[in-house]
Design a protein around this nucleic acid. Structure first.
Lengths: 224, 224
DNA sequence: TCAAAAGTGTTCATGATACACCCATGT
DNA sequence: ACATGGGTGTATCATGAACACTTTTGA
């Protein structure tokens, strides 16, 4: 067995990451404005090439750190996109990931590789480079379905939160209203969260109890 | 942007396919015995390299046809395995797939690339080359979970089958007994199958009604 | 005192589970 | 006649769905 490029068809392996957060009652995804031709000025998912001595997951983590300054967030492999013509540069196979981060008001900064970086509501996306639209759609769908049978929503919330905030996130991502009493009954019966016995005042209304998650590892739970 | 191998790290893209069928009341996976070093004599999943001008799904279909003589079967992308050291040959990223085929007693033939090909019960697998054990496990897990929320079991059954056969497959793959009456009630209420008004005699017992699927496209259905 | 979100139980409908006997056939 | 798998219905239980008022606070 020899390494003959003519015989074995090499490809560039890239990874693109759909990074989600909640802001202003909206599900948002992080996009960067590209400098490189032929997509100069287009918005795209943060991504990059995988190094020769780098595992796929490590590459995704590195890119998350480099482009968004994030680490220790929920990250999972999504799907691999490899249409022959998906990148005008040549054969590039993208192993896509999706990540969840709590809304900490982070606005990652620009770098030499891209001219702008910003959060976009998934309801109002600009035109995206490559097949990134498809990737975002796949990520949203995965997120929606995983919300109903796992506890990964913890990835979108800060350490402390109220049950109202929790419910709102479900409602926004799933795109439907939930009954407050039934929702609380379910969440509490699953013992996913515990009461901190502290309250959060948010305005001219009754302060809400603060809760935290009892688990911060992904697990299967029948939520909705 | 230039194609400089030193700068952009190229990798070989492969695909490996976990092909499942039911035989003798067992879930089986198709394996080949390798000729190539350093895994000479080891069993492995059927797989191959993706060509430069070939989409990922097309490559998987091609390999399914070449190695197992199969086409028009249920096939879905599973996961992408890319540990740096997963292949002693060098950097090979494997986009794995899983496929379901009806038990037609097919025993695919050997070829120049491998010395043997055979079905193995997933309960009794030999040692596998590369990280193929991990791939098989991921495939089984995906199959198990998809059985309960989709109709993909149609991929494992012939055109005509009895409800008893259908139930047995569920029981084997899920690893638990199901109540006959409840199972039939559920399957029939979902209108996934229709009666053919023909019977199948299988021995010294009452002949069973034959059914066929009403759909042979994957769809979400709440089965179990 | 008013507006705004938090918090709390019960009833009802639906679906899941448990369960046992007769039927049709080949040997 | 007997052994074997096929086929059928009902009662109970658990879970999900619908639903409205009181509480606490800041302005």
């Amino acid at each position: 067995m020899t390494k003959t490029p003519q015989k074995y068809n090499y490809a560039v392996i890239a990874t693109d990451i759909a990074i989600f957060t909640m802001q202003n009652e909206q599900l948002k995804v992080l996009l960067i404005k590209m400098k490189k031709a032929p997509y100069t000025g287009s918005w795209a998912l943060p991504g990059g090439l995988i190094k020769g001595d780098e595992n796929l997951d490590d590459a995704a983590e590195r890119i998350l750190l480099d482009k968004a300054g994030l680490s220790h967030v929920y990250l999972e492999q999504l799907y691999t996109f490899g249409r022959v013509d998906r990148d005008p540069f040549g054969r590039v196979v993208s192993v896509s990931y999706f990540a969840l981060i709590p809304n900490s008001g982070i606005t990652p900064k620009t770098s030499s590789e891209y001219s702008e970086i910003a959060w976009f509501s998934v309801k109002n996306l600009p035109k995206l480079a490559y097949d990134h639209k498809e990737i975002v759609q796949a990520a949203i769908q995965r997120l929606q379905s995983k919300l109903s049978y796992t506890n990964i929503i913890y990835g979108l919330l800060p350490k402390e939160f109220t049950l109202g905030e929790l419910q709102t996130i479900y409602e926004i991502i799933l795109g439907k209203k939930l009954d407050k009493r039934n929702f609380r009954k379910k969440i509490l019966s699953l013992k996913l969260v515990k009461k901190l016995n502290r309250k959060k005042s948010t305005g001219p209304n009754r302060p809400a109890e603060l809760y935290c998650f009892t688990q911060s590892k992904p697990q299967l739970v029948d939520i909705l």
